[in-house]
Write a protein that binds this DNA or RNA. Structure first.
Lengths: 341, 341
DNA sequence: ACAGGTTATGTAAAGGTTTACAGAGCATGG
DNA sequence: CCATGCTCTGTAAACCTTTACATAACCTGT
């Protein structure tokens, strides 16, 4: 039954006493083959345990039914739920998913580019703002592709993300409503568009509240926990302190909280902190983190839907989908302390 | 330059004015071809941007240079570092990595089984204790495979993991040394072998210290944060309380800490807590979590090395590799409170 | 000059599919 | 009885490689 070498279409054909063409048709266009023949073929398939060689099929067809998801960092807490959204949507349309991990390494990206060039994937989902394929990028012949989180620089690739500006606005508005005037923004970054958009939301919120430039502090940070902690350290070298920290993402916020606690401050009594993303551990912090939630599963679902559209029509209905992020109020935000109000 | 259809070996051959066989040789056995010819071919490759069609190559060769990593849960905080170990090792031997996510769903597993059956992957790394391929499992023709964390039930598949018993022993010994006598084990499970081994370490440590069965409490749990929290809730319905919680993994420990804090207790003043794994957030808990570290990158490296051995030799040097876990002392363990000692 | 050996290249088959094309069988309608 | 059309099936080419085998050119030593 389970031989050392897998059954081919020819084995099935021999047993069913038909030609290989008929077997192929019985599988992929059953209505084109007589009932009796289809029955024979199915029996032969059952006997041999035949399963069509996807590679040969893709080689012949020039396309596969796998979709490659390329991400720079699998460990990103934002990743796994989006992936589930992607998978469920793909699956219900007969596509499978494979994940490529680049670790932000162009060489690794190249590997996946070869994979794509061999038509081993019908489509591509990109988790980076840049095409991770080094200089080959420009000449690369990519399959239908969709970006997640951020537009892909090379252009022409639709993407789905979250309305970062609106999300940041919700955070800053909450802080202002609580009475904060001097609010630091932690995690400015020129490398990630999403981050600079969040900063735009910060600025817009302060503008709308008539809070002047002199009350604004923007601290560098790359979105890691460590960068949040460092930002706090830096800040305490300065003369004036904010009463609240609006962080570019949850990791940064966690770093900020660690830094503040290390100096003996209480949150939110002494300082308020907000994050962005609502990563799984946000709810388990002490205090639990007030943040902006990304609808991750929905992002995945929409991204894949867009890609599937591309795969059938050739033209996507829209080229940019921004989902609405939600404010999740927990316990890391309070009124500013009377003394420093 | 970048045409709509990718260059084939034939395009290169035409431009270089040689046969396709020569092109193939120039690429894969350069020493077999004259210098001048090799030069011509390389130029032609540069002009066309040719990259060999991995699918056609694998079809012909009956093997690919990709390795499939199948994991039930990509979001597992243990996963990403192991993956990096796997990738680095694979890469340095000319193999690429693809990840399959099963979500513990047999149907999804089947997808990847087809992938394997088509020789699209040369080897398989399995992150589950069970082959995730449903009933087809028995007849499945698998490529060389290696398990991670736990032996694969179907048998015959070598694996690399951590010495769970020894690790658990380190945790329990620490608690005993601190003076704890009544220590609860949280997260008993019959489904995961690693977990039941950790429990064996717990029992062995208590035995060695001469602490009787009457002082032992074992609480069910599936390794999630929620299960840890629930275990605490259950426990407080009982008559006697432990002074320490030894948890089957960090997630459970986090849940226990949340449960204890919710009831107003201080850690480690009122209760001590240990985890297992040393997931990234362990260090960021308040108090930071004392736990057992899994050498994740090393696990990945060893697993891949084992697989590569299998791919070349056919026979692995060893069939089971258990790495030594380390005790990481942080702040969640202290002496039991005098009143309840 | 030639047998024998070495080196470099080409020819063609094979790997497992899909599908255009052609052919066979049969029924229908005149 | 024949032309027509329909349904079902088979033949063979194509997808892009790799490689066994054959061939050709050259060199070596006699």
């Amino acid at each position: 039954m389970s031989n050392s070498t897998p059954a081919t279409i020819e084995d099935v054909a021999r047993i069913a006493n038909v030609s290989i063409a008929t077997v192929s048709r019985a599988i992929h266009m059953p209505e084109k083959v007589a009932n009796s023949t289809r029955l024979k073929v199915n029996q032969a398939i059952a006997i041999t345990g035949y399963t069509t060689n996807a590679m040969a099929r893709s080689l012949r067809l020039g396309r596969s039914n796998m979709i490659l998801v390329v991400a720079p960092d699998i460990g990103d807490p934002n990743f796994s739920n989006i992936l589930i959204g992607l998978e469920n949507e793909a699956r219900s349309h007969g596509y499978g998913i494979l994940i490529g991990h680049t670790q932000n390494d162009a060489q690794r990206g190249l590997e996946y580019l070869k994979f794509l060039n061999s038509n081993q994937a019908a489509g591509l989902i990109l988790f980076t703002g840049i095409l991770p394929f080094g200089h080959q990028t420009m000449t690369a012949r990519l399959p239908p592709s969709v970006g997640v989180f951020e537009p892909v620089f090379n252009g022409g690739i639709p993407y789905v993300g979250v309305d970062d500006i609106a999300g940041a606005r919700k955070a800053i508005d909450l802080l202002i409503t609580e009475g904060h005037r001097k609010i630091a923004f932690v995690g400015d970054s020129r490398t990630r568009l999403a981050y600079s958009r969040r900063r735009m939301g910060y600025e817009a919120g302060l503008d709308a509240a008539g809070i002047g430039q002199d009350l604004r502090i923007v601290l560098e940070g790359d979105g890691t926990i460590e960068s949040g902690r460092l930002a706090v350290e830096q800040l305490f070298m300065r003369d004036t302190l904010p009463t609240a920290f609006m962080c570019v993402n949850d990791q940064t916020a966690i770093g900020v909280m660690i830094g503040l606690k290390a100096r003996g401050y209480d949150i939110p009594e002494d300082f308020s902190v907000t994050g962005f993303d609502d990563v799984p551990q946000a709810v388990f912090m002490t205090p639990s983190l007030t943040t902006i939630r990304q609808p991750r599963t929905a992002i995945g679902k929409h991204a894949m839907a867009l890609l599937l559209e591309l795969l059938s029509d050739g033209e996507p209905a829209e080229t940019e989908i921004l989902l609405r992020p939600d404010l999740i109020v927990r316990n890391s935000v309070g009124a500013p302390p009377r003394s420093r109000r």
